[in-house]
Simulated assay, not measured.
Amino acid sequence: MAHTSPTPEAVTKAARALGRPVDDRQAGLLAVYLDQLIKWNKKMNLVGKSDWRTVFDTLVVDSLFLADFLANLKLPGKPLCLDLGAGAGLPGIPLRTLWPDGEYWLVEVREKRALFMKSALGRLKLPATNVFHGKAEDALARLAGAGHHATADLILSRAFMPWPRLLDFIHPMLRNEPGRGGVAVILSNDPPPAEADIPEGWLLGDVAGYPAAGAERYFWSLKVR
């Protein structure tokens, strides 16, 4: 039942019901993450008052379909990815159980949420998946100082800030090389704007819709020109 700790078998069944099956390994990792999330949620407000099945059906669902969306994007090998405002690790941590490409940084300024993500990742042992505790605008400078790329290949955002402001904010953070511009992916409850409304310097790329919580949600990709 939903109020009990999730089992891999229950997660497998829940994913199948959403129309995006997972394999045994993925189900096991997702069960561990959800168990940790619900336990920590009793002490701090990570996802509101919720049981694991509700979290799965309303939040983890994004990660399941996002994995397929990212797999179809034309990203460079081993992309450097930033997940802005990662909160309790959604969509990033469940995403990384299905899409392990490149190096992934969960960026979160709130200390308790960053602590939770580090604890969860300590259990999951997901490859090349890390937490940056600090302001988003400081992330790349700190990473570059530690020998990483100076710009990101992929930036993900769900409600970090309104999308027109977001594009201005992240433009200097994304790789900007001929034929190799960085990509932003926005998770939204709304379809993308018309191409005429896309700011100068950006190109609207792949768009996908998927069912979630009885409605339609969307992924938009926008590439630096």
Score class of each variant (00 low, 15 high):
A150K: 13
A88N: 01
L167N: 08
V60Y: 07
R20Y: 09
G179I: 10
D51A: 05
R113N: 06
P8C: 06
D23S: 14
V55L: 15
L34F: 08
G28M: 08
M161C: 03
L29Q: 08
V224K: 09
L167T: 07
V185Q: 03
L156G: 08
H148T: 00
A14F: 10
K135F: 15
W202R: 00
G147M: 02
W202S: 00
A194W: 03
G28D: 05
L59K: 12
A152M: 11
G48F: 08
S50F: 07
L75K: 03
G77K: 12
R53W: 03
P172T: 08
G122L: 08
L98K: 05
P76V: 05
N130F: 15
E195C: 04
G89L: 10
P193F: 06
K42P: 08
C81R: 09
G205P: 04
L18T: 09
L187C: 13
W52R: 07
G209R: 06
W202L: 02
G87F: 00
I186W: 03
I170T: 01
L187S: 11
A213F: 02
P191E: 06
V55D: 14
P91H: 02
M44C: 00
V11R: 04
I155Q: 04
V55H: 10
R96C: 03
R217K: 14
A67Q: 00
K49D: 14
L95N: 01
W202V: 00
T97K: 02
A71S: 14
R142H: 14
L73T: 09
W99E: 10
A27M: 05
L121M: 13
L90M: 13
Y104I: 06
P127T: 01
H3F: 11
V207T: 11
G147A: 05
L84W: 03
G122C: 12
P91A: 03
Y218K: 05
G48L: 09
F116S: 10
M1T: 07
H3T: 12
